[in-house]
Design a protein around this nucleic acid. Structure first.
Length: 723
DNA sequence: GGGGGTAAGTTG
DNA sequence: AACTTACCCCCT
């Protein structure tokens, strides 16, 4: 009885069973394998080999063949894949498609031939490209056991020119010169290259080709160059104690520098390190900073297919190395992975927006567990989760006490720039310095409303206010992209007093600054308009108004003022983590500027918020984090519970509500208690779909999995998504 | 009887 | 996800 191969394909499905290729050696777990799939072939991974079969062997199809001599994923990566699938409740194939950046969508060479002694098929004993056969025919021969097949990855080729006959009397002197030059070159990139070399015109070389003295030859393409990074060496700092697993405080560069001794030690001991960053923009800075003292390789979305393939195939043969990458590097075949470092570990950019929607630091933790590697997370401000996990093993780099000026908007008249901020901006202009103003959103204002009847413009596809944009005087939905002209009068009462809502966006702030400081440079930087900031980078005076997009830019050299124009929006953005995330953003303001202590101004209606005290007095930060945790514990939020969001979406409001209510009752039937089920919330329209949200909150993973079983298997009139 | 569209079901 | 099948409408 032959064993059964469990093959995982990069499709939103669990592993499928196949019979091993007839007459071939049994593949290893982790190896790439080509299998027949529907009418064609697909590349998958062997994730298990079972002795007993789930269904009759006759119903299984036979694998076509493997692509490599050994595993494509190592056992730690395979275990991580499985753990991430368990954790996110996504099919393992979804996780594979999300996390494996190369190897499963190669172009294949596929050939067939008749088995020895087989007659009556229009195929001989010679290998023959399978494209010449109809898929149905191929499948028939397969089932009857008449043919054998072989597959391999089609290597990328390049065309080169080569000589194929020797010089003879039939050639003109110039042609002779060209052919001799080509013979000397062996393989030439092009006819033009030969012509340059022989100092003749290209037509001469073309004549050689036409006469059959030279011809184009497909050759294996050169391996693509891998990117290398150079940066200023990091200033050496005191190493952090070896037991530390959570690092916070300081600047990004300082945190990176503080990690170097630990990375050096791992490399010296023959181990490899994976350093994860949340976004592409941080790759160069990180790899550049580490490359001076350490052997560094990089794997991110910036690499093209050929580069990824090369790196993946070469990594197992590398010596100890620091691999700097985005989530695409999680499953990389590093030899002897001893340390996983997650930089900016609380960054919301780590949350995958599609597929299994895993939070990458969570996947990194599962990888570290599976490989027996040490895990170290770092961020300007530790998240509640990091703080709890790192209990007693947290290390904080010294923070400079900011020069903070909190402006209580309850006591100031001017809008959107308070009198105090205006005074400070004038000083910046007078002294020829730079200022950075961070607004809570792009556009002119948060909405358009009628002063007479209270009407507020709402998106026709979403239950959200339309944002008011001054460029082109339009209303835009920041959720679905809908855009409309400004109505000439109120659609509800026909009144003419339509006014922008007070919450000011970047356009409003920029306008206000330009009015205040005529002739002084004022740039805008948000996802709508990314002004060229070169003059500011060169140190020239000016103001830049932007959103948090500015934080991903290099720091400015001559900043004397940073202002948050409205803290309050930030505080109420998002969920129960709003406060923590706001404080993190405030700590990250130091990345805007090269100067140590620019004046930081915060305009707010809540001038006595505890967050501002924690920002001002670094010594109070531990107490702030402890209080944050205490509150999370009291209210039953993560990290003390496991929280899942179920999103039900349908075109019809009634369908979404029906399914959500059905799910809620199914959860109760499964034993969900009152405190474990929150919602269903009222239906909200987003991008034309009515969405209803349910939250499931349990004490542990197992309980969550039990309760979510119903939602996971639901197929019906609404789309159900679990995060 | 078939083109063009959508919804539902299957893939080993 | 990518594909097949079933079904409907409408036209010839």
């Amino acid at each position: 009885m032959p064993p059964i191969l469990q093959v995982l394909l990069p499709l939103p499905l669990p592993p499928f069973d196949f019979l091993p290729t007839h007459g071939a050696a049994l593949p290893a777990v982790g190896q790439r394998i080509v299998v027949p799939w529907q009418q064609s072939l697909r590349i998958g991974l062997v994730v298990g080999i079972a002795q007993e079969r789930g269904r009759l062997a006759g119903e299984l199809r036979e694998a076509i063949g493997t692509l490599d001599a050994g595993p494509f994923l190592n056992s730690a990566a395979l275990a991580t894949l499985q753990r991430v699938a368990d954790y996110t409740l996504a099919p393992a194939g979804t996780v594979l498609a999300d996390l494996l950046p190369t190897g499963l969508s190669e172009t294949l060479s596929h050939e067939v031939r008749a088995l020895l002694g087989v007659t009556g098929v229009p195929i001989g004993r010679e290998w023959f490209p399978a494209v010449g056969l109809k898929p149905g025919q191929l499948e028939l021969y397969r089932r009857q056991g008449l043919i054998e097949e072989r597959v391999s990855v089609l290597q990328p080729t390049a065309t080169r020119l080569t000589a194929c006959r020797d010089v003879d009397a039939a050639l003109s002197p110039k042609q002779r010169k060209a052919l001799e030059a080509l013979q000397a070159l062996g393989l030439a990139i092009s006819a033009a290259a030969v012509a340059r070399e022989a100092e003749v015109s290209e037509g001469v070389v073309r004549a050689l080709i036409k006469k059959g003295y030279a011809r184009y030859l497909p050759v294996e393409a050169e391996p693509p160059a891998l990117p290398s990074y150079w940066g200023a060496a990091l200033e050496s700092v005191l190493p952090i104690p070896p037991e530390v697993i959570c690092l916070s405080g300081g600047r990004r560069r300082e945190r990176l520098a503080a990690l170097v001794p630990s990375l050096l030690a791992t490399i010296a001991a023959g181990g490899s390190v994976l350093v994860l960053v949340p976004e592409q923009a941080l790759i160069a800075e990180t790899a550049g900073g580490l490359a001076a003292p350490l052997p560094v390789a990089v794997l991110s979305g910036e690499l093209n297919d050929a580069q990824r393939r090369r790196l993946w195939l070469e990594l197992p043969s590398y010596g100890p190395v620091v691999l700097v990458g985005t989530y695409l590097a999680l499953l990389a075949p590093l030899r002897n992975l001893r340390q996983v470092v997650v930089l900016e570990a609380a960054s919301p950019s780590y949350k995958l927006a599609a597929g299994c929607r895993v939070f990458v630091p969570t996947a990194a933790r599962l990888l570290a567990e599976a490989s027996g590697a040490a895990l170290l997370e770092s961020d300007a401000l530790a998240s509640a989760e990091m703080w709890l996990r790192g209990n007693g093993r947290c290390h904080q780099l010294p923070r400079t006490e900011p020069r903070l000026h909190v402006i209580d908007l309850n006591r100031q008249a001017n809008w959107p720039l308070s009198a105090d901020l205006i005074k400070l901006l004038k000083q910046v202009a007078e002294r020829g310095r730079q200022a950075v103003l961070l607004a809570p959103r792009r556009g002119f204002s948060a909405g358009l409303s009628c002063q007479d009847c209270g009407y507020l413009a709402i998106c026709p596809h979403c239950d959200l206010p339309l944002r008011y944009h001054r460029d082109g005087y339009r209303l835009r939905c920041h959720q679905c992209g809908f855009s409309a002209e400004l109505p000439p009068h109120c659609p509800q009462c026909n009144g003419h007093r339509l006014h922008p809502a007070r919450a000011a966006g970047t356009q409003w702030i920029q306008g206000a600054v330009q009015e205040l400081l005529p002739g002084f440079n004022c740039w805008r930087f948000d996802s709508d308009q990314r002004d060229n900031l070169r003059s500011l980078h060169n140190g020239q005076p000016g103001v830049v108004v932007g959103t948090s997009a500015l934080l991903r830019q290099p720091p400015l050299p001559n900043v004397s003022l940073i202002a948050i124009t409205l803290l309050d929006t930030l505080l109420y953005l998002g969920d129960y983590r709003g406060e923590e995330e706001s404080l993190r953003l405030l700590f990250n303001l130091v990345e805007l500027t090269e100067s140590r202590r620019p004046l930081t101004v915060i305009q707010t209606f809540q001038a006595d918020h505890p967050l501002l005290r924690a920002l001002q007095k670094p010594a109070l930060l531990d107490a702030f984090m402890d209080e944050l945790l205490a509150r999370r514990r009291r209210l039953g939020y993560p990290p003390f519970t496991r929280l899942a969001k179920i999103q039900v979406a349908a075109k019809e409001r009634a369908a979404a509500e029906r399914v959500a209510n059905w799910l809620a009752s199914a959860l109760r039937t499964l034993g969900a208690e009152l405190s474990e089920l929150l919602g269903p919330a009222p239906a909200l329209r987003l991008k034309g779909l009515y969405t209803v949200q349910l939250l499931v909150r349990t004490a542990d993973d197992d309980r969550l999995r039990t309760l979510l079983a119903a939602a996971r298997e639901y197929r019906g009139e609404a789309r159900v998504r679990i995060e």
